[in-house]
Write a protein that binds this DNA or RNA. Structure first.
Lengths: 121, 121
DNA sequence: CAGAATCCGCAACGATACTG
DNA sequence: CAGTATCGTTGCGGATTCTG
């Protein structure tokens, strides 16, 4: 138990929410699980280009502890573990929709301001 | 130009929005400016217990570059600088309302699960 | 009062190797 | 396949000092 999220004390609601989504890939994990419903570890890994196993499992564990994702383990050979959103995870995703829309608008604004260079990132 | 936010390239809208609010005090700054309309540097400092001048000015600069806050400098003695939300900053705050509400619900859930200990933080 | 400049600790993040 | 363990790096955030 070393790399856990803060989990309070929080100053306000926004603070408590940000704590749960802070982490480079967490919002993307939420997004992935929201769209695919159920995903295995390897599927998530492939769906998040650039993520390391360490960060993925670490974020997944924290999100499970925070009650955002459900972790279902099938003791088979080869092993299989499936991740899905819980009720709280789903509601969090809903709460993030407005923010995602704002960000999309921002991206378009940014793209419009950039003629034709720098886009190549 | 060393401690700036990422500003892309972004994977999705949520990513672009999170980039702008990531930073320990940014959401609180947004909150402060939203409630008080216009605030001076010192007022913000006092309104955010625990923040250092460095982080405050750094966040403020980034948010100004991101078009979230407006920085008005009055060349007087003693100097005075006033910060306020721009249109984009205001709309971002609106977009964060659902998230704040979710966090508030989470705090209440957390508090309900904790009998009487650990609360003292 | 409002910042600038500097040093530094620590947590987050990342890459690799190994295991059940 | 789905992790665990370890090590190395990066950069955020904090404390302090100095300036216009």
């Amino acid at each position: 138990m070393a790399a856990e999220a803060r989990r309070g004390p929080y100053i306000c609601g926004l603070d408590a929410a940000m704590d749960v989504v802070s982490g480079k890939w967490k919002s993307l994990i939420l997004w992935e699980l929201h769209h695919h419903g159920v995903r295995r570890f390897g599927e998530l890994r492939r769906g998040l280009p650039g993520v390391s196993e360490k960060m993925l499992i670490q974020h997944l564990r924290e999100m499970a502890e925070d009650g955002l994702v459900h972790r279902e383990v099938y003791r088979e050979v080869p092993p299989r573990v499936e991740y899905s959103l819980t009720e709280h995870g789903t509601s969090l995703n809903e709460a993030l929709r407005a923010l995602g829309a704002w960000g999309t608008a921002r991206r378009q604004r940014l793209a419009a301001e950039t003629p034709l260079n720098q886009v190549a990132g």
